[in-house]
C-alpha cells in the first residue's frame, strides 16, 4: 500500500470514530440507544461522502459504498418479496395452519384451490436454475408475458391512444369572441388568455401532426413531407431539452437532500 493511502485511511478512521463519539454524546438523553444512533448517522454520512468522492475519481471508498448498496438492496428486496408477496398475499389463501404460523390474518373468502396455480408456476419459474430442465421456466414466463401484454394492450390503447387522439380535438380558431381587448388579455404562459390558449392549441396540433410524420417510415422525407418531418424533429428536440432541464432540477433536488442531511443531521449546522 502506498503511504498516501494509509494516511487517508487513518484520517478517515479517526474522523469516523470522532464523529461517532460526538454524535453519540449529542444523542445522549434524547434517545435510548444513543450509541447505535450515533453510529448510524455517522455511517450514513460516511456513505454519502464515499459515494460523492467518485466525482473526484474512482476510489476504494466509493467501491465499498457501491457494493454495500448492491448487496443490501438485493437482500432487502428478497425479504420484501417474501414477506409482502408470499406471506401476505399468498399464504392466507393457501392454508389456515400456514397463516397461523406466519401470524397473518386469514382470508375468509380465501382458501381456494385456484391459488395453488401461482405456487406451481412460481416453482416452475425457479427451475431456471437447473441447466437440464431450465427450459420449463419458459412456460410461466410465457404466461407472465402474455397476461401482461393483454392487460396493458387494452389499457394503453385506451389511455395512450384513443384518449390521446380525442385530446387533440382542440379549438384552433378560439371560441367565444369577446373583442380584441379580451383576446390579447392575460398573456402569461398559464394558458388562460384567449391568444395564449389558441397558440398552445396550435402547438399541440402541429406537434402531434409533425411528430407523426417524422416517425412515418414508408415515404422518403422530401418536399412538404420533409418540411413536416423537420418541424417534427425540432419539436422532439425541444421536448428532449425540456426533459433535460427537468432532469437537472431533479438531480439537484437529490443533491440538496443529501447536503441537507450532511448539514442538518450530521454536522448540525442548520
Amino acid at each position: 500500500m502506498r503511504k498516501v493511502t494509509i494516511i487517508v485511511m487513518a484520517a478517515v478512521i479517526v474522523l469516523f470514530l470522532a464523529s461517532w463519539i460526538l454524535k453519540a454524546g449529542a444523542f445522549q438523553g434524547e434517545h435510548d440507544h444513543y450509541i447505535i444512533r450515533g453510529f448510524l448517522v455517522t455511517f450514513a454520512a460516511f456513505l454519502t461522502l464515499a459515494v460523492m468522492s467518485f466525482l473526484y475519481q474512482d476510489n476504494p471508498y466509493y467501491k465499498f459504498a457501491e457494493h454495500l448498496f448492491v448487496g443490501v438492496s438485493a437482500a432487502f428486496w428478497m425479504c420484501m418479496g417474501f414477506w409482502t408477496t408470499i406471506v401476505q398475499n399468498l399464504v392466507p389463501r393457501l392454508s389456515t395452519s400456514l397463516a397461523d404460523f406466519f401470524e397473518v390474518p386469514q382470508r375468509a373468502e380465501g382458501l381456494n384451490f385456484f391459488f395453488y396455480t401461482p405456487v406451481i408456476l412460481g416453482i416452475l419459474l425457479l427451475l431456471r436454475l437447473s441447466r437440464k430442465i431450465g427450459w420449463i421456466s419458459r412456460w410461466p414466463l410465457a404466461f407472465i408475458v402474455g397476461t401482461t401484454a393483454g392487460l396493458n394492450f387494452i389499457r394503453y390503447l385506451r389511455s395512450d391512444f384513443i384518449k390521446q387522439i380525442s385530446s387533440t380535438f382542440v379549438p384552433l380558431l378560439g371560441r367565444d369572441w369577446e373583442g380584441i381587448g379580451a383576446f390579447f388579455s392575460n398573456l402569461d404562459l398559464s394558458a388562460t388568455g384567449q391568444l395564449v390558449m389558441m397558440v398552445s392549441n396550435w402547438v399541440i396540433f402541429l406537434g402531434v401532426f409533425c411528430g407523426l410524420i417524422y416517425f412515418y417510415f414508408s415515404r422518403e422525407h422530401k418536399g412538404v413531407f420533409g418540411a413536416g418531418s423537420r418541424v417534427g424533429i425540432w419539436i422532439l428536440m425541444i421536448t428532449f431539452g425540456a426533459s433535460f432541464g427537468y432532469t437537472v432540477m431533479g438531480r439537484i433536488s437529490l443533491l440538496v437532500g443529501r447536503i441537507t442531511f450532511l448539514f442538518r443531521d450530521w454536522l448540525e449546522l442548520i
Binding site: I165, S166, F169, V170, P171, L212
Partner: peptide, 12 residues
Amino acid sequence: IILVLAGLILAN
C-alpha cells in the same frame, strides 16, 4: 393523422 385532422375539423 387522418383521424386527428378529421376530428379537429369536426370538433371545431
